[in-house]
Amino acid sequence: MTDSGDSTAIRGRRLNEHELLGPLPDVEPVEITVDGQPFSARSGEPIAAALMANGIDICRAMPESGESRGVFCGVGRCSDCLMIVDGVLNVRTCVTPVTEGMRVETQHGLGQWEDSQP
């Protein structure tokens, strides 16, 4: 489930220029997969940033309601962006950098804390 719901997937999300910060520096691209589909990411950026840049806004489905959640606090405090990364449950994607070949999966329901170790 990597679609953005209302088919309102937002295009053109990289902020390539910024009047105070200058042009976006070149970095090595890395390839990751999200629910099996390949996507390009910027080396060193958090998983959630790579997802957002590729138009993916949904990280998990909540255990009680099944509601979709995406980035909320963006700094590792809330639990909304938890996903399964290389088989590990409950990874905070807003503060975990991408690596080459990383497998990212939408997390459905509750990962048990005990299971969160590979």
């Binding site: 999300r13 990289r14 910024h18 976006l24 940033a49 980035v71 963006g74």
Partner: peptide, 8 residues
Amino acid sequence: FLHVHRVL
């Protein structure tokens, strides 16, 4: 996201 990750 705007300033550190440079994503809208």
